[in-house]
Design a protein around this nucleic acid. Structure first.
Length: 499
DNA sequence: ATAGGGTTAG
């Protein structure tokens, strides 16, 4: 008995040493070896501190929390520090697998029953539930947290509001917010951004106007809410009010929230203004997300030259895959197939591996630039070389490309081969457009019946099909289709131009 | 130690 315990103890020491070695070799903190000569208490504190900063300084490396976790398990030193345990929990809650936070809690709860959890523990656990969008689990921790006496803890209640907002429990969200004895600006912001994200923009605005000290987060949240709801003028108005009247400096996030409103309205001047502001404030050198969004906005405002010039100004080590994809999608929407294909080649030369979005963009470019053979090659390359299984948008581009080139039979064949789990009415709608362009009545009728199996309320389909029929001289059929459209209450919004 | 994020067929 004694021997085996001893053996276990030795193996633990061995493991610890291996562990410390792996830490030192990974990060080689200065004087770590020397500190081993300190007193036992000192060593333990140093180790604790080291593990703590190890966790906090490597938030993106998924191996770090696993290493610390296994160290704590094998050395049975969970009980030594609630802080270390909480830091580990925090790491897991923002990691790729927030469920690990729940597992850690369950493990500690069942093996270390004397362990006393504090308010931070519950805050991070509820945060993990928010990342998982798991409303049921969140409700359970809400119950536990109340039972442990944190019902009026500002931090715990704030993450609780956030969790309910993110996982769609708006009723509970409002209830918790209303019943909080004290709130700070974070609480208000969590509530406002949460409501704005869920589409409750009116109520978010009400709270926004009522809130005592608005900051850049509150403004950005509201602006983002309006752009999500397609209320772009309202978003721009709020942005102007924020900068001009309240004198609040926009952050990177504000810029990212306002740019979709800019390109939806198509305001090039506004885009240049924000670009200039970014230059002045240094966003363009510091935040690749803002730069990528600017490429996209210039392209969507019709200035592909500015978009590509701006792209070329970004240094090679700052550019990423999204920059390349934004450029290619810009070329695609301007019908510049050749430039898109060249950019794709340059991107591969610089060592970037295209993802599914990059392929949607380049296939779209081939379709708009009438590069059918290239497009088919890209599709083949995506499947066999990059092992990306095509999704419905890739098929959409492919069908659009073949349809525009008049290769309707091939397009229809592919549309029929799409697995039914991912198929939708949009691919058939694309094909219907091609049938209309080439005046193919028979296929048009087949395709229309396919669409009607899925969606009967989209007016554009009736209009397109009745145009095909009228083009073939079948005016009576065209007329009855129009009547059917009115009878089914299908709506066709009239087109309009921005200029 | 609590809040906000970029590219996607018609």
């Amino acid at each position: 008995m004694l021997k085996s315990t001893k053996h276990l103890f030795h193996s633990k020491i061995k493991f610890s040493l291996w562990f410390l070695r792996s830490f030192t070799s990974l990060f080689s903190p200065p004087q770590f070896e020397a500190d081993l000569s300190l007193s036992h208490q000192h060593k333990r504190n140093y180790k604790k501190y080291f593990l703590f900063s190890f966790l906090n300084e490597n938030p993106t490396n998924p191996r770090v929390p696993k290493q610390v976790h296994s160290h704590l398990v094998t050395t049975a030193s969970f009980s030594h520090s609630i802080r270390l345990f909480n830091a580990l929990l925090r790491c897991y809650s923002v990691s790729e697998n927030p469920k690990d936070a729940i597992f850690l809690y369950q493990q500690v709860q069942s093996f270390y029953f004397y362990f006393k959890f504090d308010s931070f523990t519950y805050a991070f656990l509820i945060k993990a539930c928010a990342s998982l969008s798991n409303l049921d689990l969140g409700k359970q921790f809400h119950g536990v947290e109340i039972k442990m006496g944190f019902e009026s803890n500002l931090y715990v209640q704030t993450v609780l509001v956030n969790m309910y907002a993110e996982s769609g429990g708006l009723v509970e969200c409002k209830k918790v917010f209303d019943e909080m004895p004290e709130r700070n600006h974070v609480t208000w912001n969590v509530m406002i951004t949460g409501l704005a994200k869920q589409g409750e923009i009116e109520f978010a605005r009400f709270l926004f106007e009522k809130m005592p000290d608005r900051n850049v987060v509150s403004w950005s949240g509201m602006i983002d809410g309006y752009t999500r709801m397609n209320q772009h003028r309202e978003a721009l108005g709020l942005f102007r009010r924020m900068v001009a009247d309240d004198g609040v400096d926009p952050s990177e996030i504000t810029i990212l929230a306002i740019l979709p409103a800019v390109w939806n309205i198509g305001d090039v001047k506004m885009c240049q203004l924000i670009h200039g502001y970014g230059l002045k404030r240094g966003f363009h050198v510091s935040d690749i997300r803002v730069m990528n969004s600017l490429i996209d906005t210039y392209a969507k405002c019709g200035c592909i030259v500015s978009a590509s010039r701006f792209f070329e100004e970004i240094t090679t080590d700052t550019k990423n895959l999204v920059s390349w994809t934004s450029l290619i999608s810009g070329f695609a929407m301007h019908g510049m197939g050749k430039e898109a294909v060249e950019s794709f080649a340059r991107m591969e030369q610089e060592g970037w591996k295209p993802n599914r979005v990059t392929f949607v963009s380049v296939l779209n470019a081939c379709s708009h630039g009438c590069l059918v053979e290239e497009g088919l090659k890209f599709f083949e390359k995506m499947v066999s070389e990059y092992r990306i299984s095509p999704d419905i948008k890739h098929y959409g581009c492919l069908i659009d490309m073949l349809g525009r080139a008049g290769r309707l039979e091939e397009a229809e064949k592919i549309a029929l081969e799409i697995p039914c789990e991912i198929s939708n009415e949009v691919v058939w709608r694309i094909l219907l457009g091609a049938c209309s362009f080439y005046g193919n009545v028979e296929m048009g009728e087949r395709v229309t019946s396919k669409i009607m199996e899925i969606e009967k309320r989209y007016g554009g389909d009736y209009v397109l099909m009745s145009n095909i029929l009228a083009g073939a001289g079948r005016f009576a059929d065209a007329e009855s289709l129009r009547t059917l459209m009115v009878g089914r209450n299908a709506i066709k919004v009239a087109g309009s131009s921005l200029t």
